[in-house]
Nucleic acid binder design. Sequence first.
DNA 1: CCCTGTCATACCCGGTAGGTATCACCGAGG
DNA 2: CCTCGGTGATACCTACCGGGTATGACAGGG
Lengths: 287, 287
Amino acid sequence: MDTLETRELRYFMAVAEELHFGRAAERLGMAQPPLSRAIQQLERRLGVSLLKRNRRGVSLTGAGEMLLHEGRAALDATTAAARRTRRAGGADSPGGPRNRLVLAVKAGASHELLHKLLDAYAAEPDAAEIEVLPSGTCEQEGMLRDGRADVALMHAPFNSLAGFDSEELMTEGQIAILPAGHPLAAHRTLSLSDVSDIPDLPLARWSRHGTYPPGPGPEIHDQTQLAQLIALGRTVAVFPDSARAWLWAEHTAVPLTDAPPVVTHIAWPAHSRSLALAGLIRTATRL
Amino acid sequence: MDTLETRELRYFMAVAEELHFGRAAERLGMAQPPLSRAIQQLERRLGVSLLKRNRRGVSLTGAGEMLLHEGRAALDATTAAARRTRRAGGADSPGGPRNRLVLAVKAGASHELLHKLLDAYAAEPDAAEIEVLPSGTCEQEGMLRDGRADVALMHAPFNSLAGFDSEELMTEGQIAILPAGHPLAAHRTLSLSDVSDIPDLPLARWSRHGTYPPGPGPEIHDQTQLAQLIALGRTVAVFPDSARAWLWAEHTAVPLTDAPPVVTHIAWPAHSRSLALAGLIRTATRL
DNA sequence: CCCTGTCATACCCGGTAGGTATCACCGAGG
DNA sequence: CCTCGGTGATACCTACCGGGTATGACAGGG
């Protein structure tokens, strides 16, 4: 049959990501032989070869790449189904837990907008409870996809809105955040090229899923770290205007003339049919 | 665990749609008791009640409704993963089957556009093979979602583009298609109200998933049926301009002044990463 | 040439998915 | 009021298969 069980998908994803049966089995908490057998059965059932077993490791075939991408989406959708179902549980028992929405926001971003949104929505009649879930760098997309969140504030062009429904909420320019004493801090405006190649102030490198892009700048995974490094005169950063909310006394913000504008959207899974969500979106677009 | 196996999802969907354990079990090709037990286990594992077992049948709880919607998306995503993986199978073996894209189109719609697109794309260097899959009324969305198709031509506002990436290709007006001898056929233009309430020509009702909306008009599930009924003077229909391509001698087309314009898009799953698809989209937008 | 690291094979065991038989319950009729 | 039909739940059994351990085959590197 063409059924493709969740367990098989999980197994294949582990092998496809590790490209090593032993490590994949360890990650799955099982022994290597049953994993090998499961993958073979999967290949037989699909009638397709997924992995090339070279001596010295494993590599993906074209079909394997396809299953890696499509399977990720499928696994996310199933865990999303489980999470959202659990969250909806008991909401219809009278006096039970209130209908609740999880809103993912990039930690520290759009503080003022978020505040206004929450206040305005709480004032609505029969507003649901909103749980604000601060997310790491650009993690809102994954959170919507795998059901950890029901709705998110996203920032184009940093987040991709592909696959979600969304409404535009706000557009803002970007600023360079410099140490207060730095010569460039005296300028009224700057351009991206001014700040991208300052010898004594290399741009910080943000953690993306635990890895860092190459470059000379310091490694960062937290806004406070970054703020401190700027204050110490070690680096410079580029942020949307609303970042002024958390600047320190030792920081100076200078508008960037040629940085792309940042557009904040409210986004949600395209197939959502929740009344509470509709209310929140309506509130947001009216702000 | 929070794993949620595909099999459990399939079982629950059957029960949730039939609202009857016996019929659901029959549809699944199994006996009723194991199905009952499987649903109970699912409820225990999720820690949520999904179904209200009233005497005389079954009904969904709030959590059940949630799992019905989210589970449909999850099941579609897994079958899409299986289908697309199978289709990609062997594409990397040299001399093996060519890379192939399945393009879903509403049967009979946008004939000229489709023709131009296929011709232009076939002329591209290293074009993939395109399989054209004619779909029923508004079924392209489902076909993209469950992997029967890789890309589709969709027609706003009839198809919803929610959850897909898309590019606009063409905008056209709509026409009323009347029996040639009918008095209204003599007009140069008409408005929607002119054709919506003609006593002797009730608007046809199209099949949506096997059911028909209520109303006086004849029941239709096929364009040829409709064309014949119009030619016989039994009904009238509203179509995009490009429907002129298949008009009969006994038909008269009259432009509608106030009908919403129909926008044809090319649409594809938001997470697609296929080179062949990218080429097709590039060709389409350049037409 | 052996040793190491890799994935595949052989074999065994226990959990569980599925089947059959039956129960418990309620609504509808006579 | 009792019975009968139709619902989902329970009890029990069996067989399959998912998972474990032990081992094999095979290639590279010291």
